[in-house]
Design a binder for these strands. Structure first.
Length: 570
RNA sequence: CGGGCUGUAGCGCAGCUUGGUUAGCGCGCGGCGUUUGGGACGCCGAGGUCGCCGGUUCAAAUCCGGCCAGCCCGACCA
């Protein structure tokens, strides 16, 4: 492509509202433009990158036996009502009616439709099956951000596997784990698989692929010693044991005027250090009022409540709800002697004695509380968020917690959808069996953003060759010098003939502008062709990644670049 | 959904408090000229429903009301 003819609206100033490096650079480099909140147009450069990402995904999916198809974006409500998700995921689904008044929706994912198609499978002889498509999803996120990182409309590769039994599902799941590993390697992403919560997808087991980045929205706990890795939504840890001072007798009420927080109480009473307090949080879990108990210095992980209590809706209780349930305001709440409210406690409280907690009367607390004696715990459930430095659950070494971008997620769904939609086959003995399903997703745009987040410097993007919009840019230093333009055009033709994707910067701009633009856009290799070098029969080859420069003979330039690019194509 | 802020040329902004000729500035864009191996400069020029609707007024970008859109914080989030 000749740059002078290309639509590459590079900006030289930062967009005012950019909130992530990839957001800023993709806009600056003319890759994307916002249409509305969470919807982005892919301009020619952005589209080329997205196409390359998609092609890599296709190749790896096909390599594990995937069959590509394409399903619609607008679905009838019917099938979503059958699986129960028409109402379950209220909020993020855009719903609409057609001219006859029939309910429809924009697809947020495609389990329902793929499963419906799978009802056409009738024999175990047709299994296993692995189907996928690259299709638009629309999720009406409350607050999109980060450019392509968190959007409402996006393209996703989603694949679905169908097997006769759990063992078959395990095989497909492991095949995806391998395919995803290769995909992310080819994309230049250092993605680590971690244990994750399945969330509203349902299912029994899921693994997320995470790329460490401050722009991410998830926290991942990892152990350098043994390789344990889990999303903090799911992660557990070993805690140092605490030896409590003995306390004989019943809990004792004491006055705590104006004291509302754990920190204030610790300050107020020297025996009530945070790890000797019980944190009491009132939540409405699936409509049921629930008191959640944690150690004072621990943070609640709401997702663990969702998963552990299998609730659709989990939210903190409102002030009025707290007062009418507990008889006191937040800040003086406690579980001692409480009845009529479900009590769920974190195991870190098990066996503890001489604890301090709210007395369920405003401005009063209790000391000397023995958890097992004084509190009627209905359910013990891991509720807390692991923190950096706590012991790895597998080996005890200190955990690290890092912000990460979720670039892929694979789920073992089980029979949830095949059950709801009667997707069954007959087995060897002629018996009807439900299909065991898995679903596996990769967001294309989010991966593009993740690549930029991890491949940029102060000058701009540094694309890995496999996803670069162009592999080589030829910078023509002076287009008014015939010999220069001729030499550059010859190299351009040679590279194109060799199958290299090359951009010829034949714009009437000063060299400094061309160098800077090529760097913002992030083309991996640049050939500088100018009168100065040509006087000695040379051109310059610069590698974007590290700025290394070499001088090569004009006649050899194309051949050298072909070798370099092909070596990095993956 | 709650709180805060913003909306003026393709982009970034000033003007609004205190209403009054023709609404400005920088970048970008077009023409001409000088320049040309790291983001040049001069001259000339094009480009605007001041987010939308309504109200107040002799007069509204400016004041008032409603609506819409976007951003930030929180809630929420497969």
């Amino acid at each position: 492509m000749r740059w002078s003819q290309a639509f590459i609206p590079t900006l030289r100033d930062d967009p005012a509202d950019a909130d992530a490096a990839s957001h800023r650079l993709l806009v600056r480099g003319g890759f994307i433009r916002r249409l509305m909140s969470g919807s982005w147009s892919l301009l020619p450069l952005g589209f080329r990158v997205a196409q390359k990402v998609e092609q890599i995904i296709r190749e790896e999916m096909n390599a594990i036996g995937g069959q590509e198809m394409e399903l619609p974006v607008v679905h009838p409500a019917e099938v979503w009502k059958q699986t129960g998700r028409w109402d379950d995921v209220e909020g993020i689904i855009v719903k609409m009616k057609d001219r006859r008044g029939a309910d429809m929706l924009l697809a947020i994912t495609h389990e329902e439709i793929f499963t419906q198609i799978a009802t056409e499978l009738s024999s175990y002889r047709q299994l296993p099956q692995l189907w996928y498509h690259l299709q638009t999803k629309f999720r009406d996120e409350p607050r999109p951000k980060g450019g392509l990182l968190r959007v409402r409309e996006f393209t996703m590769k989603d694949s679905y596997s169908f097997d006769i039994d759990p063992a078959g599902l395990d095989v497909q799941f492991e095949a995806h784990r391998g395919a995803y590993k290769r995909i992310f390697e080819r994309l230049g992403l250092d993605a680590v698989p971690v244990h994750a919560s399945s969330g509203a997808m349902g299912g029994r087991e899921s693994v997320e692929f995470m790329v460490a980045s401050p722009a991410g929205e998830d926290d991942v706990a990892t152990c350098a010693a043994c390789g344990y890795a889990a999303n903090t939504e799911k992660a557990t840890s070993r805690l140092d044991p605490i030896t409590d001072e003995p306390w004989d007798g019943a809990p004792e009420v004491f006055d705590t005027p104006g004291i509302r927080t754990i920190a204030e109480l610790a300050e107020f009473a020297d025996f009530a250090t945070p790890e000797r307090q019980i944190k009491s949080l009132v939540y409405i879990v699936g409509g049921e009022p629930t008191l959640l108990l944690l150690r004072g210095d621990h943070e609640l992980m709401e997702q663990k409540v969702v998963d552990g209590l299998e609730a659709q809706e989990v939210r903190p209780a409102h002030e009025e709800e707290i007062v009418s349930l507990m008889g006191a305001n937040a800040g003086s709440l406690g579980a001692v002697g409480l009845t009529g409210v479900r009590i769920v406690a974190d195991p870190a409280l098990e066996g503890r004695v001489n604890m301090t907690t709210g007395a369920n009367q405003d401005d009063k607390h209790l000391r000397g509380v023995a958890v097992s004696r004084d509190i009627a715990v209905d359910r013990w459930l891991d509720l807390r968020t692991v923190a950096e430095g706590e012991g790895c659950p597998d080996c005890g070494e200190p955990l690290e917690v890092r912000r990460s971008i979720e670039v892929g997620h694979i789920f073992k769904l089980g029979t949830k959808y095949s059950d709801a939609l009667s997707a069954t086959v007959l087995d060897e003995s002629g018996e009807e069996r439900e299909l065991w399903m898995g679903s596996y997703g990769i967001g294309v745009g989010r991966n593009v953003a993740a690549i930029v987040e991890t491949h940029h410097d102060d000058k701009g993007i540094v694309w890995p060759v496999p996803v670069a919009p162009y592999e080589v840019v030829i910078t023509v230093v002076s287009i008014t010098d015939d010999a220069t333009l001729e030499a550059a055009t010859r190299i351009y033709d040679e590279l194109r003939a060799a199958g290299i994707e090359v951009l010829l910067d034949d714009r009437d701009e000063r060299p400094g502008v061309k160098f800077a633009d090529a760097e913002i856009i992030g083309i991996p290799y640049r050939i500088t062709v100018g009168p100065r070098g040509l006087a000695d029969g040379n051109v310059e080859v610069v590698r974007r990644q590290d700025g290394t420069t070499e001088t090569v003979a004009v006649a050899e330039a194309a051949g050298i670049l072909v070798a370099k690019v092909e070596a990095e194509r993956l």
